[in-house]
C-alpha cells in the first residue's frame, strides 16, 4: 500500500499564493465574483494534491479535495486577513467609517446609540480591531469557499490508482 502524500505542501503553495493576491487592493476585487479567489485557492490546492497523489499511485477523491481545499482556504484566510489588514491600514483604507457607510447603504437599521458605542470602541482600539475582525471573516470565508473550491477540484481531478503493471515482460519463446 502506497503512502498518501502530505496535504500541507499543496495547501501552503495555494493558500500563500492566493492569500497574497487576495490582500492586494484591485486584485482582491476578483473576490467580488462569488469569492472567486478563495474558490480558486481550493481548486488549485486540489489540483496540486491530485498531481502528488497520482505520482504516489494513491487514489485522489472528492473528500481529499475538500480537505486540502479547507486547509488551503484557512491558510488563505490567515495570510489575506493579516496582510490585507496591514496593507489597508498603511494605505488608510478599510477604516470603521467605511464599514458604517456600507451598513447604511445596505439599508440595515442599527440603533444610533449602539453604533456610536461601537464606533468609540473601534477608534480607541486603533487599527488592531479592524485587522482582527478582517482576519475572522477571512478565516470563515476561506473555510467555506476553500472547501467548495476543493470539492469542485476533487470532482474534476479525481483519479483511481493505476493497477500495478508488470515491469518484466515474459521472456520470448526460444527460437529453434
Amino acid at each position: 500500500m502506497n503512502q498518501a502524500p502530505s496535504m500541507l505542501k499543496p495547501a501552503l503553495i495555494s493558500g500563500v499564493a492566493f492569500g497574497v493576491a487576495g490582500s492586494i487592493p484591485v486584485i482582491n476585487w476578483i473576490n467580488c465574483a462569488c469569492c472567486a479567489l478563495i474558490v480558486g485557492c481550493g481548486f488549485l490546492a486540489a489540483f496540486l494534491y491530485s498531481k502528488d497523489s497520482r505520482a504516489a499511485s494513491v487514489a485522489f477523491r472528492a473528500g481529499n479535495g475538500a480537505t486540502v481545499g479547507l486547509v488551503a482556504g484557512l491558510i488563505y484566510g490567515v495570510i489575506s486577513g493579516i496582510l490585507g489588514g496591514l496593507i489597508s491600514s498603511a494605505l488608510g483604507m478599510g477604516d470603521w467609517q467605511q464599514v458604517i457607510e456600507q451598513i447604511e447603504m445596505s439599508g440595515a437599521e442599527i440603533d444610533p446609540e449602539v453604533l456610536e458605542g461601537i464606533s468609540h470602541f473601534m477608534e480607541s482600539s486603533g487599527g488592531l480591531m479592524m485587522i482582527l475582525i478582517g482576519l475572522f471573516f477571512a478565516l470563515v470565508l476561506g473555510a467555506i469557499f476553500g472547501t467548495i473550491g476543493g470539492l469542485i477540484g476533487g470532482s474534476v481531478f479525481k483519479a483511481e490508482p493505476q493497477p500495478p503493471t508488470l515491469d518484466h515482460a515474459p521472456p520470448p519463446p526460444p527460437v529453434g
Binding site: W29, A108, F145
Partner: peptide, 12 residues
C-alpha cells in the same frame, strides 16, 4: 437590509 449584508462579502 440585514439580509443584503449577508451577501456583502461575496459580491460588490
Amino acid at each position: 437590509g440585514w439580509l443584503r449584508l449577508v451577501y456583502r462579502p461575496g459580491c460588490h
